[in-house]
Simulated scan of single mutants.
Amino acid sequence: MTGIRSLAVVSRRALASLGAALAVAFIALSPGAALAGDGDRQVSKMRVTIATGTDDLRNASNAVATLKYTNASGNQLVAGGNLNNGAQWPGGSTKTVTIPMPVGIVLSRLLEFSIQFTSGQPDIFATGDNWNMNSITVTAILDDGSEANLVVQADSPWLHRFQSDYHTRWATPL
């Protein structure tokens, strides 16, 4: 009987040690914990503020913002969203849009910010749209609530003129 009790005590101790080792391994290998230990922050949202110049972003046209980044496995991915959802941005207006980001985008692994413009035609008689972007500010909102400016650019008469069939993409490295 004594031998069986000793085996039971050893088994409980071994099981407790194994459980503790697995818990430590799980915490050490989980991306969130590893990143927090590295002192790097995850991007939870992207806030984009754009000033439109004299040529508006027409109804039915779309401006899509994307962040290109490298994930923990070394793959390059993109995340983003539609800024105007087909709504008009009048000439001389300033619009701010906040886009939620998927989990796993790390501030130090951001590669590029871009806007892809698609000209829309609200009716069959409308010509292709052009849009003047005078300035842009892109801010990363981090998982701890702090913020980091990624892009702050402006130019005159415009920073970039998107045209219906060319110059449809604007990008800047981060």
Rank of each mutant, 00 (worst) to 15 (best):
W170T: 11
F117D: 05
A16F: 10
Y166E: 12
S93C: 11
G32K: 08
M1S: 13
D143Y: 09
A148E: 15
A65S: 08
I99K: 01
N134C: 11
G128H: 09
V103M: 09
N149Y: 00
V97H: 07
T2W: 12
T52Y: 12
G74A: 09
Q153G: 05
V97D: 05
G81Q: 04
V9Y: 11
P31I: 07
A34Q: 05
L107C: 07
P90T: 14
K45H: 15
D129L: 00
S17K: 14
D55R: 13
A126S: 15
F26V: 15
L18W: 12
Y69N: 01
A20K: 02
V9A: 06
N84S: 01
S146F: 05
D38S: 13
A14Y: 07
G81D: 03
I99V: 13
P173H: 05
F117I: 06
D55E: 15
R41G: 03
A14F: 07
T2D: 10
A171D: 08
I50A: 12
S114M: 09
L150F: 06
L15C: 12
P100C: 04
G86Y: 02
G145N: 08
T2S: 13
G80K: 02
S146M: 11
V78W: 02
A79N: 05
Q88P: 12
M101E: 11
A72L: 02
L15N: 14
V151K: 06
L22F: 09
I27K: 10
I115G: 01
G37Q: 06
R169G: 00
D144Y: 06
P122F: 13
A21S: 14
G80D: 10
T139V: 15
D38Y: 04
S135G: 04
S119G: 03
T137Q: 15
F162Y: 11
H160L: 04
D129N: 09
T139P: 04
V103R: 04
L35D: 14
A8F: 12
S156E: 10
V151M: 01
G3Q: 14
I136D: 07
M133W: 07
A148I: 00
V151I: 06
A79T: 03
A60H: 13
T96Q: 02
D40R: 07
G19F: 09
G74E: 03
G39Y: 03
A28M: 11
G53H: 00
D40K: 06
D56T: 12
D129P: 01
L159S: 02
V78T: 11
A148K: 14
T118D: 06
I4K: 13
T127S: 15
S44M: 06
G145L: 11
I115R: 10
L107G: 04
V9P: 01
N82D: 03
M101Y: 10
A79M: 00
I4H: 05
G3I: 11
A148L: 07
G80A: 10
G92L: 13
N59E: 08
G19I: 00
A126D: 15
G81E: 00
G37C: 12
L57I: 14
T94M: 06
V106H: 08
G104I: 02
T139A: 08
G104S: 05
H160M: 00
H167K: 09
V152C: 02
W89I: 11
V48A: 02
R47N: 08
A36G: 15
V97W: 04
D123G: 05
L57W: 12
